[in-house]
Design a protein around this nucleic acid. Structure first.
Lengths: 231, 231
DNA sequence: AAGTGGTCTAGACCACTCC
DNA sequence: GAGTGGTCTAGACCACTTG
């Protein structure tokens, strides 16, 4: 039985004694109290952070985390899904560029390689904390007025359906765990080495024409997903 | 930019040069070649393992991994889903006990606390490699003949539908990332600290009566999920 | 300026696999 | 026995936050 796991088990007891949001003693103190090296203590803390039970902030300390947010794995707007659970959604546009589609993206969007594509990158917030980074690709030729029509504070989903008359059909989602790049980790205010949930979505309209390709990176320590199964 | 990320980036180039399944030089040699400490090299390797690009085996070495297996996030049998993608499924029963339901489990299964429950724990294999650990809970009173009827080499799903006449209705799945316990990691032949995908499933029959509660732990480095979205 | 978490080094020992 | 990855130590320095 690895030492850091013994430490983790004892830390969990401590976490449960302290309340939600409570601060833990500094790593160096904890390590001394438990009679282990700081590295071993950090292993244990890192696991608890990945499990969503602790939250560390540089320069401040380590705190008992709040429960994960559960999002529906369905074709609904981020805003509405979060509101339905009593959280406050927000988003911040990081990038809104036009790029040339490479072969893969062109195939996914049903356009020619080199055609212009909107690349919209937004950080998703819940209760003022960053929980996801969403990059959306849409054909410029298909949605030429998007830049004027899109209100960054409003759902893209709502904008497409209400203002541009898009009717969503079937979509496909791929879900896996990854480790974020430093840039992604920074945008999500997460530490390195934190497991993330990567969600790759392709949606089509009722006629089967591609609408968007979305790459969503969610903090694995803050978010979970719910899916409803049909027989 | 953290040093281990620079190392990771350069390692990716090396991984792509070498073929799938190829062996890497030992950590100590790589560290020396890259001019970093072994710890920093291990950080980089650990990230690539979590991303599913490398695979490490104690006493043997580190190798370039094969692509992840993608499973449907739907109410179909594990066996059939894997076969459909050209993989060879297998399973191994680790535990088949009768336990007394605690309050939570009783509520989920629609029985009284203390009622007997089958606890069936199986390791799932794909192409002879362990990729998941599935723990299923079923009411003993509802399926009294399960022990005699269940063939461990055959799908539980198939056994329930074909031999016990169960008709599956709607189900609900929760999905999140966790870090495996040492016992779970050992059963999955995975190293510590590896991000896992935890899938918690509750299924009901056509009349809405609970059938089973399942806790599936999949290796995040080996498995991804696919979901089909309906408007 | 002091204290916090984040990164990194050098080195040790252990557990496992293969010869 | 030799070589591999896995765990752990002690200590250093950096980046960030707060007073």
């Amino acid at each position: 039985m690895p030492l850091h796991y013994v430490v983790k088990t004892r830390l969990i007891e401590l976490v449960e004694e302290l309340g939600e949001g409570a601060g833990l003693p500094p790593e160096r103190v904890l390590a001394k109290d438990f009679g282990v090296s700081r590295w071993t203590m950090r292993q244990a803390i890192r696991e608890l952070i990945a499990d969503g039970r602790l939250r560390a902030r540089q320069g401040q300390g380590t705190f008992v985390a709040t429960p994960k947010i559960v999002q529906p794995l369905a074709l609904v707007s981020y805003t509405e899904a979060l509101r339905a659970q009593g959280h406050t959604p927000a988003r911040e546009v990081v990038k809104f560029d036009e790029i040339a589609a490479d072969d893969v993206l062109a195939g996914q969007l049903g356009i020619a390689p080199g055609d212009p594509v909107f690349e919209l990158e937004r950080v998703l917030f819940a209760d003022e904390q960053p929980i996801g980074l969403e990059t959306t690709y849409l054909s410029v030729k298909r949605f030429p007025t998007l830049r004027e029509v899109l209100d960054p504070t409003v759902s893209l989903y709502r904008c497409l359906t209400d203002q541009l008359g898009v009717v969503f059909g079937e979509g496909e989602e791929l879900l896996e765990t990854v480790i974020a790049s430093p840039r992604e980790a920074e945008l999500l205010k997460a530490t390195q080495q934190l497991p993330m949930l990567l969600l790759h979505r392709q949606t089509r309209d009722a006629d089967g024409r591609p609408i968007e390709v979305v790459r969503s990176l969610y903090r694995g320590d803050r978010v979970g997903f719910r899916a409803t199964l049909r027989p």
